[in-house]
Amino acid sequence: MDKVLKFSVTEKIFHNVNAVSWYVLAITGIIVYFNLAGSETKNFLMQIHIWAGVVFTFNFLAFIFLAPHRFYILMKNLLEWDKDTFAWFKNLGGYPRRFFKINIGPEEVAPQGKFNAGQKLTYLFFIFMIIALIVTGWFLYFAKHSMGKGLFLMFFYLHVWGSIITTLIATFGHIPLSIANKEDLLAMWRIGPGTVSLKWAKHHNPKWFQNDVIMRPLQNCRDQYGKHNCKGSVPIFRNEK
């Protein structure tokens, strides 16, 4: 056993349905807002936008209500900031050096938890925007008149520009970086377990590995041939002990 679970099935479903419906929403929304198609097409795209919004909304609600413990762990990982988290900003996780040969800060990357500081910031912003877009979207659709014109305008621009800014961050930050981190990418997207190798976890997420993962020695165990084979250990999570 040399793998450790990074993304549970619930997280993977949430994330991937969210990502796909996000881009459907973003593309239809942008075409409609910037008038990039004729009326008929825009009408049709708007229909898709609303239905994708339904999927998007229920996907998020399902995640927090059906897998509250995973949502809790996610938020805990995102919200816990220590000295090393802040130290990450000194060299921005070494990415500028790695990708663009820009030398800033120390060579060494401060050890990070399950998410590095950049991910924490980005994901918190993403989750905030997901909620904001769901709320503003449905208010704009169903409850125009309970808001008054001023609030309506605020909601409208928050919806439009909030989604555009977030899409830019996702498209030019989140996605390229996630593709660069191959094991994480596979863990998140492959049809199958959301695991990464222990080696990968130790290297990229040392603090997560150190704090949350315990290696339990294998005891009283048999291999597939029925032979005792108690060498080695399996990773388990501290809160599962």
């Binding site: 009326s39 825009k42 009408n43 708007m46 936008h49 659709y141 008149h145 309506f152 409208f156």
Partner: peptide, 23 residues
């Protein structure tokens, strides 16, 4: 016009044409 569809809900005569998102 951004096609927010507000006006249509205020028109007493159904004189406004257009759906959400459409001019």
């Amino acid at each position: 016009c951004v096609g927010c569809d507000t006006c249509r809900h205020h028109c007493p005569a159904g004189a406004i044409k257009g759906s959400l998102g459409v001019t």
